[in-house]
Structure formats: C-alpha cells, structure tokens
C-alpha cells in the first residue's frame, strides 16, 4: 500500500501549485482541514483562500470542489472530513454545464 495521501490538482490549483500532483506524508494530516493547512504551507495562502470559506470550516463551493476517493465532498463542514493514508484527494474547479 502506498504511504501518504495522493493529491491531484486541476484548473486553478494546477496554476497555483505549478504541479499536477503530489504525495503528502500522513504525519499530522488527519483531516481535510489539516491537509489544506499543509498544502497552504507548501503553496502559499492563495491556495487556502481558494479552498476555505470565510468561516474557516467549509469549502468555498462557488470556486472549488474537492473529491476524496472519487466522492465529491459536501462543502459544509468539509474540513473535518477524515483523511487516511492511501486516500486520493482531488482539488478542482467547481464546474457544471458545458453548453
């Protein structure tokens, strides 16, 4: 089994991080919130601002979407969602509609 959390970036997150994907050591990462904190340290506060809502507990649903193991995370209270070694997390632009 792979160690750590596999994180993939698309759209604006790829521009902020300048990479398609990264593997993050589990270490202190136990929740989506702690993963976002770790990534914010790696890639700057622009990353955090893009993901976290003004209240600091949910996701900024109008501009981002997060999926853990291919399941889209409900933005409300999302940062407390548990993260485990081997999980695959995708940070993506919130998209819908293709007309």
């Amino acid at each position: 089994m792979p160690e750590g959390v596999s994180v993939e970036f698309t759209g604006p997150f790829r521009e902020i991080t300048k990479t398609r994907s990264v593997t993050v050591d589990v270490g202190s990462v136990t929740s989506l919130g702690s993963l976002v904190s770790k990534l914010s340290k790696m890639y700057g506060q622009e990353f955090r601002k893009r993901v976290v809502d003004d209240g600091g507990v949910g996701l900024r649903a109008d501009s981002s979407m997060v999926a853990i193991n291919q399941v889209v995370v409900n933005p409300i209270g999302a940062l407390s969602r548990p993260i485990r070694s081997g999980d695959r997390v995708v940070f993506a632009l919130s998209v819908a509609g293709g007309g």
Binding site: T10, G11, R60, V95
Partner: peptide, 23 residues
C-alpha cells in the same frame, strides 16, 4: 465574480478532468 470564473477563465472544457476523476 467567482460564479462565472469557470466559464471566463477556463471555459467549459475544464469539465474534462473533473468528470474523468469522478468516472
């Protein structure tokens, strides 16, 4: 604002990778 950023900046083809990840 953010409600239309996806269309302005990335265009609807931004759906491709997201949909691919979601199967």
């Amino acid at each position: 604002g953010p409600k239309t950023e996806k269309y302005r900046v990335y265009g609807t083809p931004a759906n491709i990778l997201v949909h691919n990840r979601l199967g």
